[in-house]
Simulated scan of single mutants.
Amino acid sequence: MAGGSAERGELGIGAASAAPLPRRTKDAFGAAGIAGRAVGAVGLAAVGVLHLVWAAGSPWPARDAAALADAVVGSEHVPAAGPTVGVAVLALGGAAVVGGAGGAGPTARLIRAGAAGALIARGLAGGVAATKALRLPEPSARFRRLDRVVYRPVCLVLGAAVAWGSLGRIRRRKMG
């Protein structure tokens, strides 16, 4: 081929100047950010639905209300329906925003950051600190064990997922 540009194009030299590079639509957070949002949203939704089930009077997955109270708040009595519904509304609302409701505006970003921070703080501080902050009685040994092996790790994983998903969303918005 006599035309130098054709030869360069065949060899891959100068091809970038002839055609624009495709616009990158995903950053390094790509699939991991999407997974973080999905894990955070599904986890918060599950927490919200579970609290609605409890507010309706079901002790599931415990055998009765006393066993549920011991497991989830470390006392003899379950919290009233009102505060339980309040937790459900916060969790379900958080799930919606973490999942993408509200877009990438400042309010949605603030809610996502608040959800991540609250979950991570709960995971780091633990349930005993939470019960003290809520002025509840000293929690039972069963609650302390469940908090150490289930509740705290779940809060940390959900908080990290929400934070990671939020970071990816912020970075993509800035790149676009």
Rank of each mutant, 00 (worst) to 15 (best):
A104S: 14
R24H: 13
H77D: 14
F143A: 04
G176N: 10
G30V: 00
E138D: 15
R112Y: 08
A62M: 12
W54D: 01
G99F: 06
R172Y: 00
R122V: 02
W54S: 02
P137V: 02
F29T: 10
A108T: 14
F143L: 04
A108E: 13
G105F: 13
V89C: 11
G43F: 15
R37Y: 04
K132G: 12
R169P: 00
G9S: 10
K174E: 14
K26W: 07
V39G: 13
S140P: 00
D147H: 03
R24C: 04
A67F: 05
G99T: 04
V78Y: 02
G100D: 12
L167H: 03
C155W: 02
V78G: 01
A45Q: 13
L90I: 06
G103P: 05
V72E: 01
G86L: 03
P83V: 03
A108W: 10
V53R: 05
G43C: 07
H51M: 08
P153A: 15
G3P: 02
V47A: 14
V98E: 09
G40C: 14
T84V: 09
L134E: 08
I111R: 00
G57L: 09
L124T: 06
A19M: 12
P83K: 03
I170K: 09
W60A: 15
V154F: 14
V49A: 12
L146R: 05
M1L: 08
P83L: 04
L119F: 11
P139W: 03
V150C: 08
P20Y: 08
I170P: 00
P106D: 14
A18P: 01
A129M: 09
R63S: 14
H51R: 10
R152S: 15
A65G: 03
G9E: 09
A6E: 11
G4N: 10
R173Y: 06
A69D: 02
G176F: 06
I13R: 15
L124G: 00
G168V: 05
G99K: 07
V47E: 02
F143R: 01
G103F: 13
R122D: 03
S58F: 11
R8F: 09
A31C: 04
V49T: 07
V149C: 09
R8C: 08
P106I: 09
A18W: 12
L68N: 03
R63Y: 00
R24P: 00
A55W: 07
A69E: 02
A88K: 05
S17I: 07
R169G: 00
L90F: 06
T107Y: 14
V85P: 01
A62C: 07
T131M: 11
G86Y: 05
V150L: 15
G36A: 15
M175I: 06
A95K: 14
R172W: 00
R173N: 04
A118H: 04
A62R: 05
